[in-house]
Amino acid sequence: MGKFIIRRFLSLIPTMFVIITFSFFLIRFAPGGPFSGEKNLPEQVIQNMMKKYHMDEPLFTQYIRYFGDVLRWDFGPSFKYKESSVNELIEQCFPVSIMLGSAALVLSVVFGILVGIISALKQNRWQDYLSMSLAVVGISVPLFVIGPVLQLIFAMKLHWLPLTWTSRNTSVTFALLPVITLAFPYFAYIARLSRASILEVLRADYVRTARAKGLSENVVIAKHVLKGALLPVVSYLGPAFAGIITGSLVVESTFAIPGIGRIFVQSALNRDYTLIMAEVIIFSLILVLVNFLVDILYGFLDPRIAYK
C-alpha cells in the first residue's frame, strides 16, 4: 500500500509537466496578446514592455525560464494588474474560492448521501418521491438560474439572507446562498447516485446472507450495505470537485464574491499570460491532488483493488 501511494504520487509529476507545457504554448498561440488592446501605444513603449516581460526572447527560452520560475513557486508579474504580482493576486483571491468550493463539496456529499439513503430505504414512498423530484431540479436547472432564484426568494422577498457580498458584511450567513447554489447540482447527483447504488446492493446475495445471520436491519444497512454502495460516490468525488471549481466561477460573479472566478475570466480576456497560467496550474494541481486522494481512499474501501 505504501509503495502504491508513493508510485501514484510520483505519477503526478509527469501529469503536471504535460499540463504546464501544453497550456503555456496553447495560450501563446491563441490570437492576440497582452498589449493588443492598447492600440495607441508608441512602438518604443511596446518594445520596452516586451523586454520587461522577456517576451522579446525566443518562445522556447521563455518557456524554460517560466518553468524554472514555477518550480520556485514564482508566477511572475501580472500584465494587467501592474501594482501586484500574480502570487499576491492568487493569495488574495484563492482562499475565498477554496472555502466556497470545499464548503459546497462537503455540503453536497453529506446531504447527498443522507438523502440518497432515505430515498432508497423509503423507496416509492413520499420521502423518495420528494427527494428525487428535488434531485431532478438540481440536475437539470443550471447554476446561473438557481443562484438568482435563491437570491430573489431569500434575499429580495424574504430578506432572510444578504443578496451579495459587501466588504462590510462578512458574516457566515452571507456564504449560505452561494454555497447552497454551488452545492445543489452535486447534491442532486450524489443523492441519485447513492440511492441507485444502495437499492442495487440491497438485492445483493451477501446482504441476504447478512439478514439470514439474524443481524438487525440497521446493522445490515450500516455495516453490509453502505460500504459497497458508497464506492460509486467516492469515485464521483474527483469529477464533482472539478465541477464545483468550474461552477464557482459562475457563482462568484452572481454573488459578487471577490474570489479567483472574477479575475479568471478577466485574465483570459486580457491575455494576461502569467495570471492565466498561474490559475490553470493551481486548478490542475488541486484536481490532480483530489483525484490522487480519491484513489487512495477507494483503495482503502475496496479490498479487491490490487496494489501491484
Binding site: A204, D205, Y206, R208, T209, A210, K223, H224, K227, G228, L301, D302, P303, R304
Partner: peptide
C-alpha cells in the same frame, strides 16, 4: 453462489 454470498468488503 459462494462467490457472491460473502461480503467482499469485510
Amino acid at each position: 453462489d459462494p462467490m457472491t454470498s460473502l461480503n467482499p468488503y469485510l
